[in-house]
Design a binder for these strands. Structure first.
Lengths: 222, 222, 222, 222
DNA sequence: AATGAATGAGTTTTCATTCAT
DNA sequence: TATGAATGAAAACTCATTCAT
């Protein structure tokens, strides 16, 4: 009874009608549901109905909060990019010795994809469509990664310190680091089917992580 | 030459009528059109109507020749996989010195994706769907790549010859070689947008190719 | 009266706009239209487009309210069965002398089919399909007719009263009463064509009704 | 060996190519297949493809031999009507005492439907369509049943002999005899479902047959 | 803010029928 | 006679989006 007394007034406080109104929460539920649906089914395959159902809210609210399906997709893209940037900001590579810095970068890239496998699949449609949404987004425009210039600095330092060979392009190294993990995560199903061997097990994943770190680190030797 | 002389007049002779009957050609036109449409729009986004229109044939023939949209998609997958295998068969790595063999493999992987950029995008949906079609295909089951065991052999030889370091896993090296090119091609649009610089130009592509070869070759040094 | 005064003006006031919202009415319009279309064309021959057109509503609403064509067909079946049961409930055979009771039952059966000739034709497809829908319907499961047991009681009373002969099975008598009318209504077109004589005229129908009553009543004599 | 010698030349005689040509057989196979398909699925639900597949011949032959789907349906109708007439011709009721004659007629009606349950279901669509095909068929026009006049004669004789009551209409008695069996066979699935009891078992069928004979015979008593 | 009804354009698939050989 | 390819119209069902409350 006390629970009832404690909770009911709170609930009623911001809701006179039968349905609680919580715009921020509704928006977030929609965004989360959309992220899952887009990851599961792609942009074309995703269903607005399904997103609303997953969020447990009325379909019309998709249009109320986001405008249309495309804009919702963009909102999801912005969200996952922001996640990446947040993770990058937490890396604190500046003070580290070059080799440690690169190693940490590789591991962080791998771990981020491991933790957010939907990032890959969300980007696929965007790439097929020529990055239509990304290019049209002011938010994403302002979200340029600081990592490339950071990698550039680290490489220079490493060369100066005699631990890295010369002539490595920072942009391409960054792409390589991303690609070595990305491809593994994105293509595990077909690779597993073709090789007839499960590449998604924890053991296989640990082996892959080590392989990627080794490959890049060894390739940087002078 | 004689074949041409013998066949062409015959074909032309009665190709005055509006419609020629050529089941094999029709099937192939559909397959080609489907490959394009699936690459452009994905499995969910592809339109059977559009495929038929691109092929210039009646829509019903999709069902006549392939059964349904999914089966057509599988046929396209089988085609692109067969292309990859054909390319692999032509590599002739056996007689080469280990370093040359790996180099050729890397370059061929890159060049194949450059020549067939749709391969990537065709696989995206398949991977999102857990390789549903690939796993259900007997043709693909019988199409296991010989390359992994070949890479394994090359690595051993390289180690014995003192040109490669020890402890490199052949499966993961194969995945890495593929991934370093794959990710570049698949994510060029978003990467270009994010980096604010066109990565798809011929110059950029040549630079990427060189980078990938260098990265892998350097990483293999003892 | 006050209700009327209060509501009617309101409804009329804003019914100037093109579309009024009335889910229940929409559902019913669809059901009525479906009943006609299924009766006219059968389950396979009925067109969802036509049903929507007859109802004057959007086709999608068929799926919105009923799920699919089959479920709509089931809803129609449930409706006509409910009609039959309602009619049976109104018969009040309990207090009547046995002969009057049976006579009223026969006449009511005939008259119901005369008033609802579509019942027959709606059941045809269902019987061809092995009563697939009826067996899957909880509503119909709960709608068992009380008439068989009632006929059983009436027969016993009639035997006890010396007006009916012994040994008549209630289920089969019920089926016979139904069948004698059913077949006439269901096969009038072919019978008329074959006999070269219109069996559907009011005169012919009255004659048939009398014949059926006589046949059954005479057969029950001790 | 002798069998081969006897049969092969005959078969080869009229077929030089790889496919045996036997127009009459092909036509009959199509007709049989069509009868099954129309019985299973109705006129609207039947598929020309399925009919050809069941017959094991090319679909085009349906059009070659019958014109179109409707004409094929009519051919099936003519076939089943001819079967009924053939059975009626074999009855030989003329010489029998009135009661025996009627009894034999009832039993034969019941047994014919038991042996050819598809007759019912084939007629359903025809009746729904207002006997469109039957009325347009010259063959069926010429196939009027002799039974009605025969029943008329039998009834008169029975009245004269004092075994039948007066005032029974021959057409309606004929319809009743047919209907008492017809309805049982046509509606067994729904009746079984509604009554919650299998009416199609051999035992149930025997009981029904006896009931029908009794009902009619008792009703004829003076 | 939130709901569910309603819409119209599309999407895959089916089907009777015709064509070319 | 027989075959399989080809066609066009339509069928059931879907879906993003808007409307009315």
């Amino acid at each position: 009874m006390s629970t009832v007394w404690l909770e009911m007034p709170i609930r009623r406080a911001d809701s006179t009608g039968p349905k609680r109104r919580d715009p921020a929460a509704t928006r977030e539920k929609l965004l989360t549901a959309a992220r899952r649906e887009f990851a599961d089914s792609g942009l074309a395959g995703a269903r607005v109905d399904e997103i609303a159902a997953r969020a447990g809210v009325n379909k019309q609210l998709v249009y109320h909060y986001f405008g249309d399906k495309d804009a919702l997709y963009l909102a999801v893209l912005e969200w996952v990019y922001e996640e990446i940037r947040a993770q990058e900001r937490k890396l604190n590579l500046e003070g580290l010795p070059p080799q440690q810095a690169i190693k940490r970068l590789i591991e962080a890239s791998f771990d981020h994809l491991a933790a957010h496998p939907d990032f890959i699949v969300l980007l696929n449609d965007e790439n097929r469509g020529g990055a239509r949404h990304v290019r049209g987004s002011r938010k994403l425009e302002a979200m340029h990664s600081p990592l490339v210039s950071m990698v550039s600095t680290i490489l220079s330092e490493g060369v100066r310190a005699g631990v890295f060979r010369k002539g490595i392009n920072a942009v391409h190294l960054y792409i390589s680091i991303a690609g070595l993990s990305y491809f593994y995560f994105s293509n595990t199903p077909t690779l597993s089917a073709i090789f007839g061997k499960d590449l998604s097990s924890p053991t296989a994943r640990r082996a892959r992580r080590k392989h990627v770190v080794d490959l890049v680190m060894q390739s940087l030797r002078p």
